[in-house]
């Protein structure tokens, strides 16, 4: 059976990944920071119906011990695709009034998170059939497309996330693992907000 692990899974694009993979008959390891929270209700309901096809796992990708512990708990499993979907954006920031703590949080989740997940789950992916590690990036991370819109903290985190995935490709190529970054489009989710186009 094909299997996928998705981070940031309780809402938005992450939850949609889970629904669609589940509908297609996949085994889904759905990870989110707070499974007990109200906004995780839909995910928990889906997991309940799914007859163990979808399982929910508590995971904060900024916490090294949590990532390591989950990787160990899932040690017998094979994971075809890891999708690093968990990400933070935060409000626009005026230049001259940058919130450096918020920026550090964006780096911890959006940049360090994918590397930490890859380091922890490389064996699970290595023994699968498809062998893919993917990170949800953003067109806002592209240097070729950059302009100024008050998101230097978010943009720089996504540029750096793309750099992580490029290096990761080099690290895991000999295991036959494919690594990619992709832009999901500007999606009508809580994070995407009003005005989203997809």
């Amino acid at each position: 059976m094909d299997s996928v692990l998705v981070t940031g899974d309780n809402r938005g694009i992450g939850f949609e990944f889970t629904k669609q993979f589940y509908d297609a008959g996949w085994r889904v390891f759905a990870c989110c920071r707070d499974p007990a929270a109200e906004h995780s209700r839909d995910l928990n309901m889906l997991a309940g119906w799914s007859g163990r096809y979808v399982t929910v796992h508590r995971l904060d990708v900024t916490k090294h011990d949590e990532v390591k512990a989950l990787a160990e708990r899932l040690e017998p499993e094979t994971i075809d695709i890891v999708i690093n979907n968990a990400g933070v954006n935060g409000p626009k920031q005026a230049f001259g009034d940058t919130d450096y703590e918020l920026w550090a949080n964006a780096m911890a989740t959006n940049v360090f998170g994918p590397m930490r997940m890859a380091e922890a789950f490389v064996e699970h992916v290595s023994r699968s059939k498809r062998k893919i590690i993917a990170t949800v990036s953003s067109r806002l991370g592209s240097l070729a497309l950059a302009d100024a819109d008050g998101r230097h903290h978010y943009r720089s985190s996504k540029t750096a996330a793309n750099m992580v995935m490029k290096n990761l490709a080099g690290y895991v190529a000999d295991r036959g693992i494919t690594t990619i970054s992709f832009s999901p489009g500007w999606v009508k989710t809580e994070m995407g907000g009003v005005g989203a186009t997809v």
């Binding site: 230049f95 985190s157 750096a160």
Partner: peptide, 18 residues
């Protein structure tokens, strides 16, 4: 590498702000 890639994006953003 990631710190320097991010600096390039910062410079791009700053060029717009300033």
């Amino acid at each position: 590498r990631t710190t320097k890639a991010a600096i390039n994006m910062l410079a791009k953003s700053m060029s717009g702000y300033l």
